[in-house]
Write a protein that binds this DNA or RNA. Structure first.
Lengths: 189, 189
DNA sequence: GTCCCTATTTATAACGG
DNA sequence: TCCGTTATAAATAGGGA
């Protein structure tokens, strides 16, 4: 949409990429706003710019929407498109699981906060302050790299295997998702 | 954008609202896909339709992006001055931690898949769990595979870069005091 | 509820300051 | 780098099948 049509592929020019990210992020957030206002749907968007800066958008507190989702995701409930509406039974199961899940998330969060506080008190700093420009890091990185390759090959095998199974041949089934909320959060601006 | 302009306010007619949600959801997901491809940005969208059905979209496992966001919140990472940009070091640390999380997510996801499959085999799962586990697994695995390759190249680059740094010879500096113990980790198994 | 069509409205790529 | 402007590409509201 512009003076010229551009191919949807990675932009290499850094500044152009930055501009595109800004404009399109704004566009998506705007669309999310409209969706929420028009249909009353909840929507949360979390995105990280090419520079690693976080931006979020939600019509409710981001975490509330995220938790609602996390509680269900573990059960692999299908965000399927053409299924129509869910049964009352299914809805209740989801809701129940959601409540349990929220409690777990809260507990986990508390632990992490405690830990961060402890680390700070002991003068060990936050984890991200740890120096990584050292030989050890290099070694660790190589280990991770290797582990990752191993994982990759496993996944490759798995994907390959699954692709050959008849009742799993839905390669062209689109990854369906629905929903949006918004509320904007921008730490760095 | 249509035959007539419509005001951005709540639609009361149920079926019309449903149609609008569907169309616009698709539009936003499409935009998100483009954003990711064009700029390489990570983006996760979680939304709930007016009927309460969840739909998500992400260029990586949703949990991975969500976690990246939540983790920053947890650790109280300072909103980084108003310079508009974060230090290169910090950015790298964050990115690196994110990559680690992706691996964690992969493991978790793998377990879920295993579980779903087991349940299906035993016929003890709910129909939607069994049904989706097959389809979702393939799509998700492909996504993970792609994310993996991306992460690998990033780490490769970093390893390469670090190899050239002279002042990094602190063998026993612990990489990250975050409870991760690489030596004892067995990926995906 | 689902597609498809297309008149219109929006989003936005390339510029200019 | 950050705002406007403008020509064009895309998204989509209302309909029809």
């Amino acid at each position: 949409m512009g003076r010229h049509k551009i191919p949807i592929e990675h932009i290499n020019e850094k500044s152009k990429k930055q501009v595109t990210f800004s404009k399109r992020r704004q566009g998506i957030f705007s669309k999310a706003t409209e969706l929420s206002k028009l249909t009353g749907a909840d929507i949360a968007i979390i995105t990280f710019s090419p520079g690693g800066r976080p931006f979020t958008f939600s019509n409710k507190p981001v975490e509330s929407v995220v938790h609602r989702y996390l509680s269900q995701d573990h059960y692999n409930i299908p965000p399927l498109v053409n299924t129509g509406s869910i049964s009352e039974e299914e809805r209740l199961v989801r809701q129940y699981m959601d409540e349990i899940r929220v409690l777990e998330e809260v507990k986990k969060r508390e632990k992490e906060i405690q830990k961060a506080k402890r680390m700070r008190k002991e003068g060990s700093g936050f984890w991200w302050e740890a120096e990584i420009s050292c030989e050890t890091s290099l070694v660790e990185l190589e280990k991770i790299r290797d582990a990752m390759l191993e994982v990759k090959s496993k996944i490759d095998k798995r994907v390959e295997k699954m692709s050959t199974i008849d009742d799993c041949l839905w390669d062209d089934v689109e990854f369906i998702d629905d929903g949006y909320n918004w509320d904007e959060h921008s730490w760095l601006n």
